[in-house]
């Protein structure tokens, strides 16, 4: 069965919908709830006949994890399943521009984001067309401005183009397609980075472990909000 564009994991209060914004999920703050109206989007989709077998997706998942393990082991480069070599290089450059390495953690590509994106495109085919046309838009735009492919541009040139499309509220109507693509790409990169080992460690996430007792939140977390248990 072919999966539609994915939604984030949600724990179920009493189940059902959550409020919605847009894009690739939208769980800015890691509450476990999508701020996207899952239902609205599903309701809008026709009762599709899915043609891609579950096994294909399972194979893609296996490929992604095997390749990453292999690459980590002996430096064999990852072979993308969806992206062309040129697209994959561009996706890597863009992902690292969205989330670069800093003093606290590595970059998007250090966290395996390009491979994650390639997996998503294979597992959720509805995402392919916007990705492909968006990457092409980036090159068309850089050609028209700098007569070069985006990956060949100087960092200042890349920044000039990104500045045009990275702030939806103040972007020009003429670059609307670029804005739409980049907002989506930024969201996907964030998904891939922050859910990686590197990202989880960077956020100092401390949960997902069995505990013998629940004693409430620690004093400094309470103090931050000016609340207490007494």
């Amino acid at each position: 069965m072919r999966d539609k564009e994915p939604q984030p994991e949600r724990s179920t209060g009493s189940t059902g919908s959550t409020g919605g914004t847009r894009g690739t999920g939208g769980d800015v703050t890691g509450t476990g709830f999508a701020r996207r109206d899952v239902l609205r989007i599903l309701a809008a989709a026709p009762l599709a006949v899915f043609t891609i077998a579950c096994e294909d997706v399972d194979r893609a998942a296996q490929h992604a994890s095997d390749s990453l393990a292999q690459a980590a082991k002996d430096g064999v480069p990852y072979t993308p399943q969806f992206y062309t070599a040129e697209e994959f290089a561009l996706a890597r450059v863009l992902a690292d521009l969205v989330i670069p390495a800093d003093e606290r953690s590595g970059s998007a590509s250090d966290a395996g984001v390009p491979e994650f994106l390639d997996f998503l495109m294979t597992a959720y085919p509805d995402m392919q067309e916007p990705m492909r046309t968006g990457l092409a838009w980036m090159n068309t735009a850089s050609q028209s401005r700098f007569q070069k492919a985006f990956v060949d541009c100087a960092p200042e040139e890349q920044a000039r183009l990104l500045d045009e499309i990275a702030y939806p509220k103040r972007a020009a109507a003429s670059v609307k397609d670029g804005v739409t693509f980049f907002s989506r790409f930024r969201d996907l990169t964030a998904s891939g980075f922050w859910s990686s080992r590197i990202g989880v460690k960077d956020l100092q996430y401390m949960g997902n472990v069995p505990q013998t007792a629940w004693n409430g939140c620690p004093p400094d977390a309470l103090a931050k909000l000016g609340v207490s248990y007494t």
Binding site: G23, G25, T31, A34, R35, D187, G199, L203
Partner: peptide, 19 residues
Amino acid sequence: EVWGGLGVPSYGFGGGIDG
């Protein structure tokens, strides 16, 4: 019902940060 807190970072994390 109330929800919030520091959930495990998963698919969807950071989505819509521009808004």
